[in-house]
Write a protein that binds this DNA or RNA. Structure first.
Lengths: 231, 231
DNA sequence: CCTACCGATCGGTAGG
DNA sequence: CCTACCGATCGGTAGG
């Protein structure tokens, strides 16, 4: 009973990768079973249906998210300039495993209703908190007054998810061609860092009013690049 | 011979919608045939294979894009502040038919290699032109100097595509719940305008240096909302 | 965890 | 544009 070789985990892992890469409909139970070297009925012993497997794959991704989010937000709403940290934390979460972004993107397109319910349940509460925080910043004058808080949050969120989910493809447009050797077959590795940095810059610049001073006034060598060197 | 009832177009239209909504693998030839009220073999008389049908669906979307892009860019690189017009033109293109954004998103995830080739062939040339234009703006000081031109373009592009492709779902997070009556079953209608406006604001604010003045200095009633009323 | 097997549906063809 | 039909594969079950 204790010795299960952790086949369940292996299945889940393989399914996660394959659903992310080829989609739910594009992935057969047989191909998953092959990937972990068991038969299809054996797979169905562990996960009673394909739909159940899907649910568990998403559950794993979302629950991780749900347990990390509170910490991030708590940290984000306690400092002045912590919004930058929040954005980067979100980026970091999805960059760590590109499949997370891909699954979220696919689920959004394939099952809009289910996704909406999920967002409504898990994300909306945090949205209000963040929106309030942004409004406070607006009153203080550090955040643009013509910014629509909720829209800004939603935009940045799917901005990040979309950027990372499609980084493998869209990223190739940046630079002269092959980034410089990191163009293997099944990379699934981190997105182009230059592009991500630009993404952070866009989100930041569109949020904080005084951010402009840095590049508007005098030219300063590189005072902000190192500010976010490690996370 | 002339009288074909335009079945080919009907098939293409139905396939476009269904591929966008359920994905290529999630859409059977039978279901497409049903939608236009013919048999499956009849469908295969018009389009010799499912793959061929896919190609023609994408061809229709992309070729439209390719014919419109030159005009837009020409207009965009001839004025001072025409970048705003460009962004809005891109948004308008995808907003007109949400399926365009969805198909592009799906193709990016399902066929990364094909998509990369396509982007390389059709988008890269325009990228350089735009990038040069941005660099000029940077030298003049109207565009942020720490902006990475190519990354900015790519980011804004997939930002728009992603926002519109997922607007039905993510848009529901904005506002108190149902936007106010526009929540039918198969809407496929335009994305939340408040969210799109915020998207434009983000792209603009992260591009132009002096844009800040507007909201930073004195409070002016609503001097920019009407500036982009109709397109 | 496997062998053996199910009905249903898949994309596609023959032949008209 | 249809009827009739194909082999292959789909998700899933029986029964051990």
């Amino acid at each position: 009973m204790a010795r299960n070789r952790d086949i369940r985990s292996e299945i889940l892992e393989a399914a996660t990768e394959m659903f992310a890469a080829r989609g739910f409909d594009g992935t057969s139970l047989q191909s998953i079973a092959d990937a972990v070297d068991i038969t299809k009925p054996s797979l169905l012993y562990h996960y009673s249906s394909k739909e159940k497997l899907r649910e568990e794959v998403l559950e794993a991704v979302f629950s991780h998210w749900n347990s990390v989010l509170p910490q991030i937000l708590q940290a984000a709403t306690s400092g002045d300039r912590r919004f930058e940290a929040l954005t980067e934390e979100i980026i970091s979460f999805f960059s760590q495993d590109v499949d997370r972004a891909r699954l979220l993107m696919r689920e959004t397109m394939d099952r809009p209703n289910e996704m909406r319910e999920w967002l409504d349940e898990y994300l909306r509460p945090w949205m209000s908190i963040l929106a309030d925080y942004i409004e406070k910043g607006q009153e203080e004058g550090v955040i643009y007054r013509d910014l629509v808080p909720e829209s800004y949050i939603v935009n940045v969120l799917h901005f990040v998810v979309g950027a990372i989910a499609t980084s493998e493809v869209f990223g190739s447009l940046v630079g002269s061609g092959a980034p410089g050797g990191v163009e293997a077959e099944g990379d699934r590795e981190g997105p182009n860092s230059a592009q991500i940095e630009e993404l952070v810059r866009i989100a930041r610049t569109a949020l904080f009013v005084d951010d402009v001073e840095r590049s508007d006034l005098e030219y300063r060598p590189d005072s902000e690049a190192e500010a976010r060197a490690d996370s």
